[in-house]
Simulated scan of single mutants.
Amino acid sequence: MNETELLDILARGEDSRHQFKANISNIDALAAELVAFANSGGGVLIIGVSDLGEVQGLSAADISRLNQLLSNTASQSVRPPIHPISLNIRTAQSLVMVIQVPEGLNRPYTDAQGRIWVKSGADKRHVTAREEMQRLFQQAGLIYADEVPVASATVANIDRPALEEYFENRYRQPLEETGPSLARLLQNMGLARDGVLTLAGVLLFAKKPERFRPAFMIKAVAIPGGELHETRYLDSEDIFDRLAGQYQRSLAFIKRNLHHVQGDQGVNSLGILEIPEIVFQELLVNALIHRDYFISAPIRVVVFADRVEISNPGHLPNHLNVEQIRYGLSNMRNPLLASHATHLLPYRGLGSGIPRALNACPRLELVDDRIGNQFKAIIPRRAR
């Protein structure tokens, strides 16, 4: 970074990637800034500048002291330690120190008191909500939502016929002929832990899973216009079920609220769906398997007059972006669910679902809303 680049940043003001400080003398204050950047994609801390972006400058003694403070803070007051890079830039007014903080590879980072800080706009905030902490650990691969036990769900809540059918289809062996007890078998499959069902066990095989996790359902609505705030609807359904049932019922909801067109079919044909069915098969499966189950919110399916929208709680995980998933790159947020879903849903786990949907519907729009913390697929309908 040179002076011209620095002045350009100062002219634009503070944001989530750039923080200005006139000076810093407190090791805890510096640690909080470093931790927030490391947990939030990295950024630049500029010292010697007012909040308004006016250069106030630093003395040579300030620069020496700040370098020592930075070294001590990054190695002793940030856990795990990070490795920021400092750069001293001479402006027409005075010296300014620029500290570049890379995105942390071992998130979440904490300060010496064990507090987790993240960026919130141009400021930072202390993370206290359990769900947000869980998501940070999830991003680091330290915890997966589908492996977490659901305290009130026990082995007795398993829908045994559904499990027996799955087991025989997958392993070609009746469930009753296996050696271990049901509790041990479920634990071996990752569906229970010490007699308590994991989230995967609840979502895949529990009787009435909505008793334990009512938010993990699909809200489906068909609206005659193009805005969500329409005063009436054509069809509506709250879909509570196991994952396989949610998939089947939400696909049926979409199909019954779309038109069928004759196309090249004969006059006596029922016609073909205005949007290829495979588009919804792939998008619904991806929503159910890859949603963020640390967010207590439903998947939303809305059939508008001109489009269909499928909104999924949680933006794309880690560094994954829309362009990457267009070409088949994937990152499993719920590996346990994914491993079982290949035998329950039309899912292969190869990252090929989105490319198939795009091939069938090139105008499909994918939106990774990181501020709203959701992923949305927008499927345009045929003009009539």
Rank of each mutant, 00 (worst) to 15 (best):
N2K: 14
E5M: 08
D8M: 10
R17T: 10
H18V: 15
F20Y: 06
D28E: 12
A31P: 00
A31I: 01
V35M: 02
A36R: 05
F37K: 03
A38S: 09
S40R: 07
G41W: 00
G43K: 05
G43T: 07
G43F: 06
I47A: 06
V49E: 12
L52Y: 04
L52C: 05
L52D: 12
G53M: 02
G53Y: 03
Q56W: 04
L58T: 00
L58S: 02
L66S: 00
N67Q: 15
Q68V: 01
N72R: 09
T73H: 01
S75Y: 01
S77E: 03
S77Q: 12
P80Q: 00
L87P: 00
A92N: 11
Q93C: 01
P102E: 06
E103I: 00
L105I: 06
R107L: 15
Y109T: 02
Q113L: 14
Q113R: 13
I116Y: 04
K119I: 04
D123T: 09
H126A: 04
T128Y: 01
M133I: 15
F137K: 07
Y144R: 13
Y144T: 07
P149R: 02
P149I: 05
P149F: 01
V150E: 02
A156E: 00
N157V: 00
N157S: 00
L163T: 02
E164Y: 01
E168N: 14
E168P: 03
R172F: 15
Q173A: 10
P174W: 14
E177W: 15
P180C: 10
A183T: 09
A183E: 15
M189I: 06
M189Q: 13
M189R: 11
A192H: 05
A192W: 00
R193H: 08
L197Y: 00
G201A: 08
G201C: 11
G201I: 03
K207A: 13
F212L: 00
A215C: 06
A220M: 03
E227I: 14
L228K: 13
L228Q: 13
L228F: 06
T231E: 12
D241R: 05
R242G: 13
S250P: 05
R256L: 07
H260Q: 15
Q265M: 09
V267M: 14
V267I: 13
S269T: 06
G271I: 11
G271A: 13
I272R: 15
L273Q: 05
E274R: 07
I275E: 13
P276Q: 14
V279F: 08
V279Q: 08
F280Y: 08
Q281C: 03
N286P: 03
D292I: 10
Y293R: 08
I295S: 03
V302Q: 02
S311F: 04
H315C: 15
L316A: 02
H319M: 09
L320H: 11
I325M: 08
I325Y: 01
N334W: 09
L336I: 09
L337K: 05
S339Y: 10
I354N: 03
A357T: 04
L364R: 03
D368A: 02
R370T: 14
I371Q: 11
G372E: 12
K376F: 04
I378M: 09
I378K: 07
R381S: 14
R382S: 13
